[in-house]
Amino acid sequence: MESSVQSAVFYILSAIIVGSAILVVTLKNIFHSLLFLVLTFFSIAGIYVLLHAEFIAAVQVLIYVGAITVLLIFAIMMTAQIYSPVLRQTNEQVIPGLIIVGVLLITTLIVLGNTAWRVSEKLPETQSIVTIGKSLLTTYVLPFEVVSVVLITALISAIIIARRD
């Protein structure tokens, strides 16, 4: 019973994700695109909840729905002429692009659908935050620390790129 509810929720969320993602890249008004992007991010957070990854879901909402969206709103508001109705999201290469992406999509679906993936027999963690925190500071401490170097780099880079000459 539970699993059928779960798969129903999964399919609904997936439909919302795919549908709104398509709208993001096709709508003419960039602000509307952004709103559908928020919807996409939210539904992805829903998928994480479905997979018992509550922490990732919370992070998804905080960072993607919160920070990144706000950043994009600022970027849109500060960019002149971005509302102009002549703006198109596609160019003359849209047809070859669609064909290539279509072929890639179909082959990926066939290949990934016919593969025996390694499935963990363990039950989902009940306290995923504890486990994540522990492994970030023990097993994965090296990549965790290197990520902070990457963040510093990104900050410095952003300041340099945004400078006024």
Binding site: Y140, P143, V146, T153, S157, I160, I161
Partner: peptide, 26 residues
């Protein structure tokens, strides 16, 4: 020796290079 570390190191390698390529902004 591990894919996550490798990927993050790769990002650390390339992010500065993006900015350095565009250093002469004008």
């Amino acid at each position: 020796g591990e894919l996550i570390t490798l990927y993050i190191a790769l990002e650390l390698t390339t992010i500065p290079l993006f900015v350095l390529s565009a250093y002469l902004k004008k």
